[in-house]
Design a protein around this nucleic acid. Structure first.
Length: 260
DNA sequence: ATGGTGGCGGTGCCA
């Protein structure tokens, strides 16, 4: 099973790139972030022609997530628990069958949280608490799951091209990193770090200031695996070449393979 | 360099 995550920065602008990448990469399940579309605006014909069924949690203009799969999927959640009126489309979760038992895949678009010291940052931390709560529920099943997405958190200084420049950024705040560590310390495995302990495995390069050409990147897109999934982890990759294409998203796909 | 780039929607907001 190949599981992937990709923040596409508008699925309508990136439908051609996405369809080509699906054909080339052949993932089994993909979670998308920042589709910036309502469900009716999703380019369903173009994407589903590649052999994938798309499940959408849409929103007008901003945010929006989707789960694509070439196997039957049971959607198990379209939001995190305790939303309390939260209308932002940032979570989708589905369950697929595998020879090794059910696999749950969660798609996450974690709030950016900038600027710090505002209600946007408070919303980010609250959202992370809700993700931790959902993760505790999933862990009780003692099954395979993968929580993939744009976490908008650089786990350590190693994940930032210039840590000093990001000292006051929400993506690098001690509070953001502590919440991510709390999530990991529940027993999850960061798939990229399971294979590369000290490399600069960036997944995002800003559009501004020629960041891609200068490799001014961040590692903010992650695949976090339950113990049952981590036991079957056989490969991990970051499809950096996607960032070099004309009209690219500012994020690239991250994927892992589970031996099932 | 109080900029820079990109998407949405049709104006500033968000990243």
């Amino acid at each position: 099973m190949k599981i992937a995550t990709w923040n596409v920065n508008s699925v309508r602008k990136r439908a051609g790139h996405l369809a080509a990448w699906l054909k080339a990469a052949q993932p089994d399940v993909v979670v998308l972030q920042e589709i910036k579309a309502q469900e009716a605006q999703f380019p369903r014909l173009e994407i589903e022609a590649t052999g994938y069924k798309a499940e959408i949690v849409g929103q007008k203009g901003f945010n929006g997530v989707a789960l694509l799969a070439r196997h039957p999927v049971e959607i198990t959640a379209r939001a995190l628990p305790d939303g309390d009126g939260d209308e932002q489309a940032r979570y989708i979760e589905g369950r697929v069958a595998t020879p090794a038992g059910p696999l749950t895949v969660g798609g996450i678009y974690l709030p950016n949280g900038n600027p710090i010291g505002t209600d946007k940052f408070a919303y980010k931390i609250t959202w992370m608490d809700r993700l931790i709560q959902r993760t505790r529920q999933l862990l009780e099943r003692e099954e395979m799951f993968v929580l993939g997405g744009d976490y908008n958190v650089c786990p350590t200084e190693l994940d930032v091209y210039n840590p000093k420049a990001f000292a006051n950024d929400a993506l690098c705040q001690p509070q953001s990193r502590a919440a991510l560590r709390t999530l990991l310390n529940l027993g999850l495995t960061d798939a990229v770090r399971a294979f590369d302990l000290d490399g600069a495995c960036y997944t995002f390069w800003d559009y501004q200031a020629g960041a891609w050409a200068k490799n001014w990147g961040l590692r903010i897109d992650h695949l976090l695996l339950s113990p049952q999934a981590a036991d079957r982890l056989s490969a991990v990759g970051i499809d950096k070449t996607e960032r070099g294409r004309p009209d690219a998203s500012d994020h690239v796909p991250v994927w892992c393979e589970l031996e099932v």
